[in-house]
Amino acid sequence: MTVSVGWYVGLGAILFSIGFVGVLIRRNVLIMLMCVELMLNASNLTLVSYARQLKDIGGQVDVFFVLVVAAAEVVVGLAIVVSIFRKRLNATADDISSLKG
């Protein structure tokens, strides 16, 4: 018998909140993307924990799909960063203000 699911959900909540605060306070777009990965991982941990608790393999299948979506998201996000960097020579979020009214 392993540790109860509540502990895993609490750890997932802590990891998610760290990633959340990171997206809010960091200005480097790459690190913001890393924080998004952190949040996705926290939700993965929660999904696996509930899959074990509810004895339902569907949670693990969801984690599988989250992994694929995370990979696609990183590919597109980094492509956007590279294309912005080519025009602006900078990768901080404060410099991307072309749409400001």
């Binding site: 509540g6 929660t46 899959a51 509810l54 004895k55 339902d56 393999i57 949670g59 693990q60 299948v61």
Partner: peptide, 17 residues
């Protein structure tokens, strides 16, 4: 998370082991 508000139906597609 503490209140386990999101407990749904168990084992829709099979048990995890």
């Amino acid at each position: 998370g503490h209140n386990h508000f999101s407990m749904g139906q168990n084992s829709v597609v099979g048990t995890a082991s």
